[in-house]
Amino acid sequence: MSVRPDLHQHYVRACQDLGQPENSFIAHVLQEADKNDKIRWAKGITLKIAGNDRLVPVQRVTDDDLKVLTSVLPNTVFVTGLDLRCNVLTDAGAKHMATFLQENATLRYLNLMFNNIGTSGTELIARALHEETTVHIALMLKNNSSLVELHLCKHEMKNFGVERLCEALYENSSLRYLDLGCNKITRDGVKFLAELLKRNRTLEILDLGANRIEDDGATDLSEALALYNRTLQALSVVSNNVSGQGLVALSDAMKTNTELSYIYIWGNNFDEATCTAFSELIKTGRLKPNCTDVEPYEVDGHVHLAELSHGLRKHYYWTPSCGEVTNKDANASLAIAAVSEYL
Rank of each mutant, 00 (worst) to 15 (best):
S2P: 15
V3M: 11
D6G: 05
Y11G: 04
A14Q: 12
Q16V: 11
N23P: 05
I26A: 01
A27L: 05
V29G: 00
V29F: 04
L30I: 03
E32M: 11
E32R: 15
N36I: 03
K43V: 07
R54Y: 06
V56L: 11
P57G: 07
R60A: 04
T62Q: 07
F78Q: 09
T80Y: 02
L84C: 02
L89P: 02
D91R: 09
A94D: 00
T99M: 12
T99N: 15
F100E: 01
A105W: 11
A105I: 04
R108G: 07
R108T: 09
F114N: 14
F114C: 10
N115G: 05
N116D: 14
S120D: 15
G121F: 06
T122L: 08
A126T: 12
R127I: 08
S145M: 07
E149Q: 10
E156Q: 14
F160I: 14
G161D: 01
L169M: 13
S174N: 06
R176N: 06
Y177C: 10
G181K: 10
N183P: 02
V190K: 00
K191I: 10
A194E: 05
L203C: 03
E204H: 08
G209H: 09
T219A: 08
L221M: 02
A224W: 05
L225F: 05
L235F: 01
G244S: 13
V248G: 04
S251E: 10
S261F: 01
Y262H: 15
I265E: 05
F270G: 07
F270V: 07
D271W: 04
D271A: 02
K283W: 08
T284Y: 05
K288H: 13
P289V: 09
Y297G: 04
E298C: 04
S309L: 13
L312S: 01
Y316V: 08
T319H: 13
C322F: 13
V325K: 14
D329L: 03
A330P: 00
A332M: 12
S333N: 06
A337M: 03
S340T: 10
Y342N: 11
